[in-house]
Amino acid sequence: MSKYLVSAIQNIGHRVIEGIWRLGVGTRFFLLVLLKSGTSLRRFNLVIRELYFTGVLSLIIIVVSGLFVGMVLGLQGYETLQKYGSESAVGTLVALSLVRELGPVVAALLFASRAGSAITAEIGLMKATEQLAAMGLMAVDPVARVVAPRFWSGVISMPLLAAIFSVMGVFGGYLVTVVFIGVDQGTYWSQMQSAVDFHFDILNGFIKSCFFGVAITAIAVFEGYDAPPTAEGVSRATTRTVVTSSLVILGLDFILTAFMFRGVS
């Protein structure tokens, strides 16, 4: 029994040390990617190519989810606000929840599972099939040529996708409350406009999504590059990307929110 306990404690210790070690390796890799970003900024075509895969191909899921999240928000918000006779505030509710929280966070979660996992799998497979090694032997640095463009494409597309998500959500809320339920459309927009502030809501939401973009793609490229070059290794790395980045998004969201809205309202 005590032997079992000891091994369990050892296991925990091992995992913690392993985690800290990986964090160190990952951070070093992240800095390396930043250091070698010159090529992808000089040859922006490389980034544009990856933007297609991370951005354009994520559009459908972002647009559809944004629309539905907005519709549900409108419906639920209306049901609740109606009890207090303030259904006119439904526009405010939809817009504020989307712009401040749901837009950046849900879009980031979707982005992690759609684009982040794809990045990890692609880089992992390139490693497993010796493509990265071949590139190195052709005197082309794989971090500069393969990793950095993918990283930057993610950093660029994440805020754009979050904005598209929010707009679709506002539109979805409009569809449900104004078109279906019959809230006055002037009220919907004006209430929203008087409550949503550019600096505190929209800019902060935008900054959040930028942070999420960096975090997700940094995790995705690291997991891919670090994956054991086997089928099992790549599949595990892909799972880890989704799990780790989801947790990081939620944790980061709390920290950023605490910083941004501290002392204000």
Binding site: E122, M126, T129, Q131, L137, M138, V140
Partner: peptide, 29 residues
């Protein structure tokens, strides 16, 4: 290394590039 070539066991072609672009890769780089 530009003076060296290496042929890997299974070719290690870049799967996201066409045959043409694979061969052109080093010239472009």
């Amino acid at each position: 290394r530009r003076k060296m070539g290496m042929l890997f066991q299974f070719g290690a072609l870049f799967t996201d590039l066409s045959v043409f672009d694979n061969v052109a890769f080093q010239m472009r780089e």
